[in-house]
Nucleic acid binder design. Structure first.
Lengths: 145, 145
DNA sequence: CCTATATAGTTGCAAATGTAACTATATTTA
DNA sequence: TAAATATAGTTACATTTGCAACTATATAGG
């Protein structure tokens, strides 16, 4: 393994461990406040961003990188918690929309301040502008494929 | 949310999604070759780096960021696969060492070329030197706490 | 049109994870 | 030194995930 490869691997491990550590910390913050996990926020936010306030399950999967069976089950939980409702898609008989409910929007509002603080303290704390930029462009490059 | 916060959040999402996408891809590569998951490699590698070829379970947990019950169970699986053996710690009656076996070292050797190629293609492909450096320093800063 | 194939979503089962309780040994402190 | 507290590891139970099979609808090719 040459010098460059060594660096690549250090960076790779860095990515994995950083992500894990930061994610663990942020999840802890939410849990301490009795709030649901980050995955719920992710999905609710994606739906809420849409002007129709709904998304096809397949689109949710693509955005938050979940396999389709896990989308089904996450939406199950969100629906049971009344944060979301399912509706058949009229244009495609196979499709299902998940609509965010008023309660779901409230949940976003409740979670946001905690989430925001947690990310600031456990992730952004010591980061320089150029490191933040680097992360953004790295993602752009990796997700392309 | 001001401009800077917005950037922080884009970077935060970037970190999460990048990690997820790259990890999914690399795990797929290993699975296609009939090899065990990345977590096994991580642990085996940490043990193998030690001159004694063993590590306390608690130390494993700290290095690969696993909670202690999950360390117990991962070592259970590794031991069942004969890649590792447990031995009581003589200095501390509560402690347990996990020793890597010859078979475990072979597994490292088998996994490495696949792992290495996978990381290169799914992670390092389009990355510039300065982005790699950024990831490394970001990790250093985040893990400190 | 009809058959073959692909896509969207769901479900069952096995494996992995989180949480909390539990056992056993160490350490502290009164 | 005895009692209280802390630490290392394991285990039980509930939740979540991964994988493969399954249903239903859509699309493509003959």
């Amino acid at each position: 393994m040459n010098k460059k490869e060594q660096k690549i691997f250090r960076a790779w491990i860095a990515l994995i461990r950083t992500n894990q550590a930061a994610l663990d910390n942020v999840e802890d913050c939410l849990k301490k406040e009795g709030l649901p996990p980050l995955g719920w926020y992710d999905v609710l936010l994606e739906i809420n961003r849409e002007t129709d306030k709904c998304l096809r399950l397949q689109d949710i999967g693509q955005r938050v990188l979940l396999s389709k069976n896990n989308v089904t089950r996450l939406i199950d939980r969100l629906e049971k918690a009344k944060l979301v409702v399912r509706k058949k898609c009229p244009e495609d008989g196979r499709g299902v929309f998940a609509y965010i409910t008023h309660k779901g929007q409230n949940m976003l509002k409740r979670m946001w301040p905690i989430y925001r603080e947690a990310v600031k303290t456990h992730f952004a704390q010591n980061l320089e502008e150029h490191e933040i930029n680097a992360l953004i462009t790295i993602y752009e490059k990796i997700k392309i494929k």
